[in-house]
Design a protein around this nucleic acid. Structure first.
Lengths: 209, 209
DNA sequence: CGTGTTTATGACCACTTGGTCAAAATTCAG
DNA sequence: CTGAATTTTGACCAAGTGGTCATAAACACG
């Protein structure tokens, strides 16, 4: 038995099934949270039996951990793209756009992450204090540089980034509330949010004077 | 047996125990989510036996529902205070300050609410579409009025409110992440957030020209 | 085809969970 | 003090949970 844990050249079936199960798990975990999700539910969603699911993943924690790992890579990508040599306001509004696109296209991933942080990040606290903090430090330096040379307004770069995370992820994590408040207008919520945020942050970032 | 459900003049003991249990339940629910919380945990936290807990509350759902009810009242209070006759920018920044204070002083309530919305608001969807939407409509009209008479910049009032909700609640719901990124500077996170947001929104709201 | 390996599953298990109940302990009014 | 009402609890239960295991089916390949 070649456990999926030993990853020396996965079979075709192994590749297919693990992907299938992870998709199902993402859906169930993001809808019900880690504790709220059950293996039966995930197995059902994936169309496999529970023992079969546990043939590919060592445990419930294992699936969850691998989902988070896969997520964190792509999750930080938009911020990584923030370029020190670009036009400052465009770089920051570009970042906002990319984050909003992620909320629109990968809401399940956003909610999976939100769940994890809400619970106190039990599985990724090292990543936050390590990888994430390092990346934020790097980009914070760039933004602070822009502020000091007068290319953008004086802002606390870390809290600026927090506000961008919050405002953009809101449209994935709090989608239910957004829809309830907007009613029929909710159709255009991502376009409207983009227009508002880009315009508002542009105005807020323009150097004073 | 006078079930706590029948609320005709609660006994001293009834008043005390229900309050005690709700405090414990708030803590456990906000830390672990609805499904993740167990009655044993709540009973333990409250220092009562499980059957005793169920003497005061009909079920797990019952406790949760009553917590949410109590929450929603106070939750909307900061927005209710937004006054059409006040100075526009001050009114909005005042709202931001009040919301940040709530994140600082009632983080458990914030996370309880976040949990509920993340799961698709199964217990409060009517409240969102009713009470909340009505309130937002009312305040949106005020803000839009200010924008149209040139007292503040042209903004999409609904998405402005979303951004304020997101940015302020972020400091309660994503506290773990905020602390990880700020490191030792996290001590002053609420003061720094207030300074940044008030200044940034002031700049963003100033009428152009 | 035959055979070793991979994949799949039904039956099962220990443990947790929300909830019940009868009976005991406590409180309280007169 | 006493009896009725309120409060508390240990013992218990059915359903659901993550996970195991022996066995069977499907597959790869010479």
């Amino acid at each position: 038995m070649a456990r999926a844990t030993l990853s020396s050249k996965p079979t075709r079936i192994q590749a297919e099934k693990t992907a299938l199960i992870m998709e199902a798990a993402l859906k169930v975990f993001s809808d019900y949270g880690f504790r709220g999700a059950t293996l039966d539910q995930i197995a059902d969603e994936a169309g496999v039996s529970k023992p079969n699911l546990l043939y590919y993943f060592a445990s419930k924690d294992d699936i969850h951990r691998r989902l988070l790992e896969r997520l964190l890579d792509t999750w930080l990508e938009p911020l990584r793209q923030l370029n020190a040599d670009g036009e400052p306001v465009e770089e920051i509004t570009g970042y906002i756009r990319r984050k909003l696109e992620m909320s629109r296209d990968y809401p399940q991933e956003s909610r999976l992450f939100a769940n994890e942080i809400l619970r106190g990040a039990p599985h990724v606290s090292e990543t936050l204090a390590g990888q994430l903090r390092a990346l934020v430090d790097e980009k914070t330096a760039i933004i602070t540089g822009w502020a000091e040379t007068g290319k953008i307004a004086q802002v606390d770069a870390r809290h600026l980034i927090f506000s961008i995370w919050a405002a953009t992820q809101h449209y994935a994590d709090f989608d239910t509330q957004v829809r309830a408040v907007l009613g029929p207008d909710a159709e255009n919520r991502f376009e409207d949010a983009t227009a508002f945020l880009v315009s508002f942050y542009t105005r807020g970032l323009l150097p004073e004077g």
